[in-house]
Amino acid sequence: MTTQIEAHSSYKLKSETNRLGLWLFIISDAFVFAGLLVSRFFLFYGERPELNQLLGFAVTLVLLTSSFFMYRADTDIKHGNVKGFTRNILVTIVLGILFLVGVVGLEWPTAPFSVGENAMSSVFFTMTGMHALHVLTGVIFLFIVYRNGKKGLYSQERHFPVEGAAIYWHFVDVVWVFFYPALYLMGNAV
């Protein structure tokens, strides 16, 4: 019993340290995105690229929905519902892929400029590309967590990787919360 208590508190302590490290990474990564956001307003303050508004709106809803399912997966494992966790994380992965298809597969080919054509196109492709890369990384990370979950590696007591994946995924969502209005809604379309 004592060994069990010791193992549990040791895991909790490790999780706390890991959580702190993850947040440190998230904050430093946020500065990269903040820099991109500043360059967008510095280079073309009152203007925005003429993009497909409905597509931008749709991919935003897809990403928000994926965040909701990630939250559910995180909540499920916290309460010992492993089946619900694997189901919800799978939905999150599918929605993440759908977002990537929307941005990279549909928005990029129909954008009114090509890569490096002007400052606006450079900023647009850098912002969406950098974000898409993070989404892709998140999808890969979620897939690893999904597979480990299927193998039974996580339980109600031990599930920090799920929490870590969830924090990372929500961070990617927070970034898009700022990128969406900055790219699609603010300024005159040119």
Partner: peptide, 20 residues
């Protein structure tokens, strides 16, 4: 989680119309 999700969707719809 569900309440927050609904609020986020409502805010995004509002955002879309403000931008429009």
């Amino acid at each position: 989680g569900f309440a927050v999700f609904i609020l986020l969707i409502a805010l995004t719809i509002g955002e879309f119309f403000i931008g429009y």
